[in-house]
Amino acid sequence: MTTIFGYPLPVVLGQLVLGFVNGSFYALLSLGLAVIFGLLRVVNFAHGAFYMLGGFVAHLLLIWFGVNYWGALILAPLIVGALGVGVERALLRHLYTLDPLYGLLLTFGLAMMFEGFMQQQFGSSGITYPVPAALTGFYKLGFMVLPIYRAWVIVASLTVCFLVWILIEKTKLGATLRAATENASLTQAFGINVPVMVTLTYGAGVALAALAGVLAAPITQVSPHMGTSLVVVVFAVVVIGGMGSIFGSIISGLMLGFVEGLTKVVYPEASTTVIFVIMAIVLLIRPTGLFGRD
């Protein structure tokens, strides 16, 4: 059997592919976090809870209204994004003049509320969400059997990340967002309605989390705590990529998915901690993150 540094090649490749799938989720989630942090200076601890709500909304749309996966892919982010808009207008808005720590505490509290509420309503055991018919089946890659749905997750996440990157870096709307991120008050003094932009940006970041939740539903099952541990990893990804860096969050999300996959081959015991070790090293050597600005 072919080996690479003594490890069987199929095992290495298999873990890399699974790492790619995880990395796609990290990229999608850290992208939303980075956009929100950039403009609002809020460390959105509720991001994992919005991801979870995305999964639940997909589930409820299916069992209550018969809306299928494809419908949920559009509707769940809109519904959860609207909830995010409400949260920003009613709660976060009042904290911008205070220390950023208050935003973190508020969103942390919100996450606990959302998770507690869902647990009370639906219990904590996972609910299976069916893989859509068009995406069932497997690709035989030789070294592993890859469910078509997981390949779809990679393609869908990367496409969305790419479109968001284009929107932010290459369009007029994105230029306005970048300007407001850099200097909100001056941008507003040019006649741009920054408060509305802040609200919509939070809604959009939250909608991205919900989209990730819908994509995850057929893989991980829907449960109130599906976002709890994930969000901690995603925070590490954002710190490694550089707070507020769009490109950095996408690339480091994918990269860390791979690193995690490789660690599972080389030293499985460390696979859950490797990202945090990298985060510590990056913070020591380059506190602004790999792609952050000084």
């Binding site: 007029k172 300007a179 200097n183 941008t187 006649g191």
Partner: peptide, 18 residues
């Protein structure tokens, strides 16, 4: 107040017409 993350063209076109 020139924005570092915007090109010269984007800086020029940033303020909406009033």
């Amino acid at each position: 107040g020139i924005f570092a993350t915007l090109t010269t063209g984007e800086n020029l076109m940033l303020p909406p017409r009033v």
